[in-house]
Nucleic acid binder design. Structure first.
Lengths: 222, 222
DNA sequence: AAATATTTTTAGTCTTGTCTAAAAATAAAT
DNA sequence: ATTTATTTTTAGACAAGACTAAAAATATTT
C-alpha cells in the first residue's frame, strides 16, 4: 500500500515518463509537484526500495511494470471521479480537478469498480483524457492538435491539452466543447492564429488556443 | 482547515460527549481512537489553541460551539457517503464504514451538497443514525432499545446500536432489517433473551442482540 | 487521612515528508 | 580541455503525529 504522497510521486513520474523515453529527471518531478529536488531524491529512493521504480544516481528514474500499473490505477481513479462529478453531481469540467486529486487516494477496489459501473464504464474523462482499465491499459485514439490542421481540414473536438480552469472557462465562454465539429477556415502565418467554423459560426482563435485543443480528424486525415 | 487526524479527534470527542455531560476524558478518547493517552494530550492542546474545544488539565475536554459544528459536519459527510455507497454503489450496510472513514475527510462543500441532493436529502444513514444538516442539527426520533420493550409491545426497527460488521451480518442472516415490524412475544427473566415476531415468524434472540436494536414504538409507547 | 491505584501530563524519541545549505556530479561553454 | 553553470545528492534540521517511560495529579481504598 502507498501513502498519498507516494501516489502523487508515482502519478507525476507516470505523466512525465509518457513524453520522455529517457529517465524522468529529479528536477522535472520537483517542478511538477512544486517541491524541492532534495525531497524528490529522498522519496525516489524510498519508491525504488518498494520496487515501483528504477533509480540510478544522477540518471533520473523510470517506473517498473508494477509502478506503471500502480500509477495508471491512480489515474484511473482520478478520471472516474471526474466523470462522476460532472455526470452525477453537476460539476463543471473546470471544477473537478482539485476534488478528484483528493478522491483518487481513497482505497477501496469495490468502490472504484462500482463507480465505474454506475457511470456506464466510461472510456474518457470530461477533458477527453482516456481512462485506464483495471490492468492499466488505455486506448489512445488518433488525435491532433488543432494547430496542426491545414485549411479545410475538419474534425471533432475530443480533448484539451491544458486543463487549467482558466483555459476551460475560456472555452465555455467561446462555446467550444468536446464533441463539436471544427473546420479550419483560415490560418495566419504571422501569429499562427486561425479562423475556424464551429456551431455554424466563424470565430478567430489564437495559436495558443489552437495548440491546446485536440481534434479527431474526420477527413483528409490519416 | 483541519487535518484528517484532527478531524478524527473531533469526531471521537463529539461521540463521547453525547453520553457524558461532563468533560470527555483523555483515556476515553485514547481508547476510542486506539492511541495513547499522551498522544491525546498533545492533540487536545493543539485543538484548544484552534478554539474548537476547551481543555483544562486533568479535567477532560468539551467541544466549543464551533468544534461541535465542525464535528457534526464530518459526521454528516460520513453518513451521506454511507447512504451513497448503499444506495448507488450496491454496498451492503456492513461494508460501508471503512470507506466512509476515508471519504469523510474529502474537502469540498459543493461535493457534499450535490451528493446530498443526488441522494434525495436523506435524513438517516443505512444504520438508522440521523444525518446532521449543514448547521449540525439532527432530528432525534423517539426510539427504544428492543430489550426495554415489554410483552406485546411492538414497533418498527429503526436502527442499530452496534454497527460492527459481525453484528450486521448476523442481522442479515436472521433476516432482520431496518423498517421491519417487530413484536415482543415473550421475555425470559433468566437470561434476558426474548422471542419476537418478525416477518410473520417467531424467532428467539439473546439479550445482547435485543440491547443493540432500536425500535420506534407504534403502540403502548409514549 | 494516609496509602494505593488510576489517570493524566511531561519529557524525550521516532518516522514521514518536507526544507535549506553545502558538496558532488554532470552538462554546457568558452 | 578547462572553466562555468546546472543538476543532483548529501547532511542536517524541522513540524506533525505518534510512541515509551517517568513524574505529577486525581481517585479510590482501607
Amino acid at each position: 500500500m502507498f501513502t498519498s504522497s507516494e501516489e502523487n510521486y508515482l502519478k507525476a513520474i507516470y505523466h512525465l515518463g509518457i513524453t520522455s523515453n529517457k529517465g524522468v529527471s529529479t528536477n522535472a518531478i520537483a517542478k511538477r509537484l512544486r517541491t524541492k529536488a532534495s525531497s524528490v531524491t529522498d522519496m525516489v529512493k524510498k519508491l525504488a526500495d518498494k520496487n515501483v521504480l528504477v533509480y540510478r544516481k544522477y540518471q533520473g528514474v523510470s517506473l517498473t511494470k508494477e509502478g506503471n500499473k500502480t500509477a495508471a490505477n491512480i489515474i484511473r481513479k482520478h478520471r472516474l471521479w471526474e466523470v462522476f462529478l460532472v455526470e452525477k453531481l453537476n460539476f463543471n469540467w473546470d471544477e473537478v480537478h482539485d476534488v478528484a486529486e483528493q478522491l483518487e487516494h481513497i482505497k477501496s477496489p469495490k468502490l472504484i469498480n462500482e463507480l465505474d459501473a454506475l457511470l456506464g464504464f466510461p472510456k474518457y474523462d470530461p477533458h477527453g483524457d482516456p481512462i485506464p482499465d483495471n490492468e492499466g491499459n488505455l486506448d489512445q485514439i488518433e488525435k491532433s492538435l488543432l494547430a496542426t490542421l491545414t485549411i479545410n481540414e475538419f474534425g471533432i473536438c475530443v480533448g484539451v491539452h491544458d486543463s487549467s480552469s482558466t483555459f476551460l472557462q475560456f472555452l465555455d465562454k467561446q462555446k467550444i466543447a468536446l464533441g463539436q465539429e471544427i473546420t479550419v477556415i483560415e490560418k495566419e502565418d504571422f501569429d499562427g492564429s486561425m479562423t475556424i467554423k464551429i456551431n455554424n459560426k466563424k470565430i478567430s482563435i489564437s495559436n495558443k488556443i489552437a495548440n491546446n485543443l485536440y481534434i479527431q480528424k474526420v477527413q483528409n486525415g490519416q
